Simulated assay, not measured.
Amino acid sequence: MAKKDVKKIGKTMDKTKAKKWVKDYQKANPDAELNGYLYGRDILEKLCNYPGSDGIWIFKGLNDDNEECLVLFPADADGNILDKKMKSLGAAAKINTRDEDDPANSGSPCPPECPIGFGG
């Protein structure tokens, strides 16, 4: 990955434009099975607080039931996935617990659990 300040990748945007982009996507893809995922603060903080983490990679994946999902990984200052101390990639979901093999892929999908005005 090119040298950038990983902590500064991404920016805020006007909420009207953000909502428009989401609705435009949903309108252009009416048959999409998935519009988004909700992740709680706890898992995001665990990933951000993983030793050496400066960001989070979010990848599309297919779960064991062949359903589309998102998988999150902590990233270092160079954008590399921090997996050296994990039992498996993405295991940071359960950092500091007894079950460290679960990837961070258990967000609430939309649909069916969508916020008002966003889909499903």
Rank of each mutant, 00 (worst) to 15 (best):
E67D: 14
D5C: 06
D76V: 12
I9D: 03
C110S: 14
P51H: 04
L38Q: 13
Y39W: 08
D83T: 10
D42Q: 10
E33D: 14
K46E: 09
P74Y: 13
K46I: 08
K20F: 01
P74T: 15
A75M: 15
G10K: 04
A104M: 07
K87L: 12
L72R: 10
K11S: 15
D24C: 02
N105T: 05
G90C: 06
E33H: 02
G55M: 08
G61M: 13
W57M: 12
S53V: 11
P109D: 11
G90Y: 05
N80F: 04
A91V: 05
P109W: 02
C48A: 15
L89G: 11
N29A: 05
D5N: 12
G55K: 09
R98Y: 02
A93L: 07
S88F: 11
K11Q: 14
F59R: 09
D76I: 10
A28H: 03
A104K: 08
D76L: 11
G10T: 06
I43Q: 07
D99M: 07
K19S: 11
L47W: 00
V6F: 03
Y50G: 03
D24T: 07
I58F: 06
R41V: 14
N29L: 04
D54P: 00
A75S: 14
K46V: 10
I58Q: 09
E33G: 15
A18I: 01
G36T: 06
N66W: 06
D42S: 09
K94A: 14
A28F: 01
N49V: 11
T12Y: 05
C110T: 11
D64V: 13
S88M: 14
D76N: 13
N80M: 07
L62G: 02
G61Y: 12
G10W: 00
R98V: 04
K60N: 07
L34P: 00
W21G: 02
K60H: 12
K4N: 06
A104G: 10
A92S: 09
E67H: 06
Y37Q: 10
I43W: 01
E33A: 10
K19V: 10
V71Y: 07
D5Y: 00
Q26I: 08
S106E: 11
T12N: 08
E45T: 14
A104Q: 05
A75C: 15
K8H: 03
L44T: 08
A92R: 01
D101R: 08
E67V: 10
P74V: 15
N105A: 13
A28I: 03
L44Y: 00
K15I: 09
C69F: 01
V6L: 11
